[in-house]
Design a protein around this nucleic acid. Structure first.
Lengths: 153, 153
DNA sequence: CGGTAGTGGTTGAACGCTCAACAAAACGGC
DNA sequence: GCCGTTTTGTTGAGCGTTCAACCACTACCG
């Protein structure tokens, strides 16, 4: 029995293409702004944010990868750059000799503190200001549903 | 007068982070599937799709960039690869000697035809199947609003 | 016409990401 | 305690994207 493709109908196509265009444009805009104003890509910004929120601004590499939505490899490469920039430092883990602990330096924290207002302003301008409160609520539920669906299966 | 940062409140943070996680996970999943099954990144797939829908399967480079959501540079590099793969061909434009016209080859069309069912299935599984009809309608409106907002300003 | 501004497209360097392979250490069953 | 398995993190190659610089051509305006 041949499994027929469930093609998208015109309405679904429109949804999908608008979604693609919107997310791509939004992310590119924010990434460009962050690169221009803070000299870092959005992925690096997010790594620094998660570190800054952790107790003592330190996290195991694996937890940092998890929470920042990076692969281990990605984080490893990123950490090398962030360390070279003086924004983080890597320490050995006392309880697991395989482990590494990423620590946000004061300089890294200062850089993040300088970058954050502009970035948040960008997020507000390009996303939150564009949508109604009801739409933002819808977007939250949709996103949460998708996250559950994508990480669950 | 100092302009205070309009920080995100906890609800907004939750919305933003879920949105980020969801779109990142969705795009990474689809990209990986496409790379695995069709040997091309999603950006290339989209270029081929737009070409396949154009009259005579041909488009000026600039229009192709516009419609596929690529920068000119990106498309130029991509076109080089797609041409090397035998999926497109570039012709001179008769009315503008600066111009180039990208043409989808039969081989390119066949590759696209082979890749499409799997990709559409992925989009359905990871996005459409996860959301209710009402949510999909909301997502369409939200996306359209964002596109208008991002391209308008 | 002639010059200047704008457009179309390409290029190369720098950079970030993915993937697969790898080393080192921890775990788990027996 | 030992051996296979799993986990942690890194590495290098290959690839795609960005950015800025650039050339060739067109369009506009006096």
């Amino acid at each position: 029995m041949v499994l027929m493709t469930r093609w998208l109908n015109p309405d679904e196509q429109q949804t999908w293409r608008s979604f693609l265009t919107a997310t791509r444009a939004l992310m590119e805009t924010l990434d460009r702004e962050l690169q221009r104003d803070a000299g870092m890509p959005h992925a690096y910004y997010e790594i620094l944010v998660r570190l800054s929120e952790a107790p003592q601004r330190r996290l195991r590499m694996s937890e940092l990868a998890e929470s920042s939505g990076s692969s281990r490899s990605r984080l490893s490469h990123a950490a090398a750059r962030l360390e070279a920039a003086g924004w983080i430092r890597r320490e050995e883990c006392p309880t697991d000799r395989r482990g590494q602990i990423a620590v946000l330096t004061d300089e890294g924290f200062a850089t993040l503190a300088a970058a954050a207002p502009g970035h948040v302003e960008g997020v507000r301008r390009h996303l939150f200001d564009a949508l109604s409160p009801a739409q933002l609520d819808q977007l939250r539920r949709i996103s949460e549903t998708l996250v559950a669906h994508l990480t669950g299966s």
